[in-house]
Design a protein around this nucleic acid. Structure first.
Lengths: 344, 344
DNA sequence: TATATACATGAAATCGATTACTTTTATTAT
DNA sequence: ATAATAAAAGTAATCGATTTCATGTATATA
């Protein structure tokens, strides 16, 4: 691949490379006449600068790294995070930054995530959807590379959080307003997000004077209909079964739907359920799933915005969490308790 | 961000930079003793090479670009393509290549996709899920940058294709084997993929001695339940309505399900449907959707493999299409026709 | 006319590596 | 002991830019 360089332009114009560089970069100490000549010649020759040469000299790459593996190894195929990624990408590109994935490779060798960042002179990393306890992730989060995380708080780092505690509280309050008192919660595996949601659930239950019962709180894997199905079955077999079940997310809600159908119950007449995430699925299910819709795209955009800010203001990075509120989507899967009694 | 360079090592060891470089790169003209000293010192100082300096000199970046926008602008959030991306990423990284997204930016300026590739010295591009008629995409596909496309054929370029024609044929044959003769096809908007599927549908219908009726072939948008719902409603209102409807994809199948439910019909007792893609949704729907599952992850991996081959063998690139067969997933949404008659 | 100032351009160092070529040192053959 | 050869290390050019500093020319001031 033959490439035109600044030197080709300088030769063709009979000027020095430094003049060409200055003309192309808008320095003031080049006459209008030569600047025009240079720009015109550059266009004519189809000149494209070399990002790597420039990076070498200026120490700027405009490359943002993404770290993107979840506990289930869904990675990029995870609905929520593919929206987040989409948001990061568009915001970053609008600001002249490129997106690339961090990995553990340097040619045939295995290196650490941090080393990969340094090797490629990545200017900042967005950590999403990752096992935060992984020592390499910890190392990266504690390094001198600007880092912004999503739905996790690293010490002295910027982050974007969905408003899990309050969104959950709002959901519980809504369900309660529909007359439910026996509200179960199948939560996901332990993580910052999960703890916040549990907090929202427990605190709001108490606030509403509702009993928080141990057998109403079960664990399941996120985005895993199977484990959620099993948990749902357990709840249905309880002596005093709940009238409403809150689920870890919309995808796993399918597992609940199956278990409920199999038990011969109807949603929402016999039992109510609510999901979480609101990414596409909820709109497709039948009955339409009442859920908390997270603005994943916006979360991504805010993360990119914050990261870029922290890259460009490295001396005073912003570290206050950016909290993005979710939206309660009232659909069909939560019904009034009254109806449920009647229907029997 | 202070970085250790090859020069720091050379100073500390009292050797020249070239010796250090050679030692680190496994050249033979360095004594074992000095090599060990150098490697040890590098480790001690935490030396990480500078990918950009190296790229500048060697003209190799090991960066693979991804082009990834679809007609619906779902982009990364598109189920099928997020799996493809996942496959590309893992295969590329296993071979020491990095993944980055192509865009139209150079800082504040807008440049062409090809210019972006050249600017960043991207070694090859994987074109997935893109309007192939976009002049900039055409330009890229006709350039000297190695390109591999997915589900589209560019002239003299490698590509990975799902086996749309044959997979569709298999689906039609299966549906026919269940007794269906009045098989409708709601297809997606015009594209290489769509044309292949239509071909598979039409040819197999003829082959089976079935009539190909114009009013049984309607167009809808991909992954759009709404337009598919409208098309389904049209089919249901026909005087002589089909007993089975083939749909553009699994997501839009939800539109069909809604239309059918609203018409008071049951799947598969009153009418059968089949989807396409087989990415998660089919397993979650109720009744479980009979569909053609595409191995999107494998498609991505094959695309990366082919692209890397063509990068490393630029003189004789492989241009024969790599065809990845889909898998017919027989579930519950297609029933025998007999049953349908009885159920009335 | 001589001098100061502004303007335009060029020379050269630099970023961090790689690599062809040269020089030095050690080893072997004569 | 000397020449020939092999091994090990160093010199310097290079990749494609940016940027500091120096130089030369034109204009303004005294």
């Amino acid at each position: 691949m033959i490439m035109i360089t600044i030197r080709d332009i300088s030769r063709k114009c009979g000027l020095s490379v430094s003049t060409v560089s200055k003309a192309l970069n808008g320095y003031s100490d080049v006459s209008e006449k030569t600047r025009n000549l240079i720009i015109e010649t550059a266009r004519e020759l189809g000149y494209i600068p070399n990002a790597h040469a420039r990076a070498l000299k200026t120490n700027r790459t405009y490359n943002i790294g993404i770290l993107f593996v979840d506990d289930q190894n869904n990675g990029l195929t995870h609905q929520f995070f593919s929206h987040v990624l989409n948001g990061i990408k568009s915001e970053a590109e609008n600001n002249g930054y490129n997106i690339t994935f961090i990995n553990r490779r340097w040619g045939a060798q295995t290196i650490t995530l941090l080393q990969n960042c340094k090797f490629r002179r990545i200017e900042g990393v967005c950590i999403a959807c990752v096992e935060p306890d992984d020592p390499e992730v910890q190392q990266l989060a504690a390094s001198d590379v600007p880092v912004v995380s999503i739905d996790h708080i690293f010490k002295d780092r910027g982050c974007v959080l969905s408003d899990n505690r309050n969104d959950m509280a709002e959901l519980v309050r809504y369900v309660h307003s529909m007359g439910h008192k026996k509200i179960a919660y199948i939560h996901g595996t332990d993580s910052y997000v999960t703890r916040q949601r549990i907090k929202g659930y427990v605190e709001t239950m108490k606030e509403l004077g509702l009993e928080v019962r141990g057998e109403y709180m079960l664990e399941s894997l996120y985005t895993n209909p199977l484990t959620t199905r099993i948990a749902t079955e357990k709840l249905l077999q309880l002596e005093d079964r709940p009238t409403c079940i809150l689920l870890p997310d919309d995808v796993s809600a399918y597992g609940a739907v199956e278990a409920i159908r199999e038990a011969g119950l109807r949603i929402p007449y016999d039992i109510s359920i609510a999901g979480y995430d609101g990414v596409l699925f909820d709109r497709l299910m039948s009955p339409r799933l009442t859920t908390v819709r997270q603005d994943a795209d916006r979360i991504g955009r805010e993360a990119a915005k914050l990261l870029i800010y922290n890259i460009e203001n490295a001396s005073q990075p912003r570290m206050e969490p950016v909290v993005i509120k979710g939206e309660l989507v009232i659909a069909e899967s939560v019904g009034p308790v009254l109806k449920q009694l009647v229907s029997c």
